[in-house]
Simulated assay, not measured.
Amino acid sequence: MPRFSANLSMLFTEVDLIDRFEAARAAGFKAAEIQFPYDLDVETIRRKLVEQDLRLVLFNVPADDLLLGGEGLACVPEKQGMFREALALAVDYAKVLRPDAVNVLPGRCLDSARQTEYLSTFKQNLGLAADAFSPLGIKTVFEAINSLDMPGFIVDTGAKMLAVQDELQRSDIFLQYDIYHMLRMSEKPAEFILRHARRIGHIQFADCPGRGQPGTGTADWAALFSAIDQSGYDGWTGAEYKPSGATSTTLGWFNHYDNR
């Protein structure tokens, strides 16, 4: 079965972020990811990881107003200076925390007439990120987010991710494949993962619909986790779902599928 990491931005929210490291380790996780770790001092995070013998495998470059309904950062031509500042902050954290990968969220374009311009800006910024993280031995990843939950997102399908990767032709830029988002777009994640595993740097998941834990939607998790195993993908698989109750009560899937 896959190696599972706990997304501390979405799981164990019953306690403050600083206490979620301990909660994840107590639940049996050996790795964690955080969407945006910047509210915590980087040395505090490092100490928590050491104390809990926990590996931090992923975090995101800051994305400005993306989660508040805005366009975000990485694709907006007028925000390229802000992106460079955000990237510098992410690099400072990466130098200390040494994650496996750092995610660059493409963002969205709310003016369809500028779609091509926004996509071009994103590709430029994604290249800048790879230039910064590759010397540290850290993968640069980017993800598609479904355009039903987040209208205007400029990369919203597996095909669009592959197209960006094909155009850039860089061996240090990988896909972050989120099973929930691609199910939401009516894609077939098991088939995609089996076909493109070598191009994927990180996988995340939640059930669909609802974005809850496995078992709350219609996805076939035995088949999906088996496909990840069969594909040869060797990274971590991140639980990034909205727990239907206290996180500890939603981990039946983990206790069933995790190889501890």
Rank of each mutant, 00 (worst) to 15 (best):
L40I: 06
A31W: 07
R47N: 12
A23R: 11
D41Y: 09
D16W: 02
A26T: 14
A24F: 02
P37H: 04
L49I: 00
F36Q: 08
R20F: 06
E51H: 11
A26W: 00
I45M: 05
A31G: 10
E33A: 12
Y38R: 03
V42S: 03
D19E: 15
E22N: 13
L40D: 01
F29C: 01
R47V: 13
D39M: 07
A32W: 01
V15K: 15
F36E: 08
R25M: 11
L17P: 05
R25C: 09
V15H: 13
I18V: 15
V50K: 12
A24H: 01
Y38K: 03
F21N: 09
I45C: 04
K30T: 14
G28Q: 10
K48W: 00
I34N: 01
V42A: 07
D39T: 10
L49R: 01
I18D: 15
L17K: 03
L49C: 01
E51Q: 13
A31F: 04
A26H: 09
D41H: 13
T44Y: 01
R25S: 14
A27L: 07
K48F: 00
E33V: 07
E43N: 07
R47Y: 09
A23P: 01
I45Y: 04
D41T: 07
F21V: 10
G28L: 11
F21E: 10
E43R: 05
A24T: 00
F21K: 10
L49T: 01
T44D: 07
Q35F: 15
A31V: 05
K30W: 04
E14H: 00
Q35T: 14
A31M: 08
I18Y: 15
T44C: 04
E43W: 00
A31D: 03
L17F: 04
K48E: 11
A32T: 10
V15P: 04
E22W: 09
R25F: 10
R47C: 09
E43G: 00
I45A: 05
K30I: 11
E51D: 15
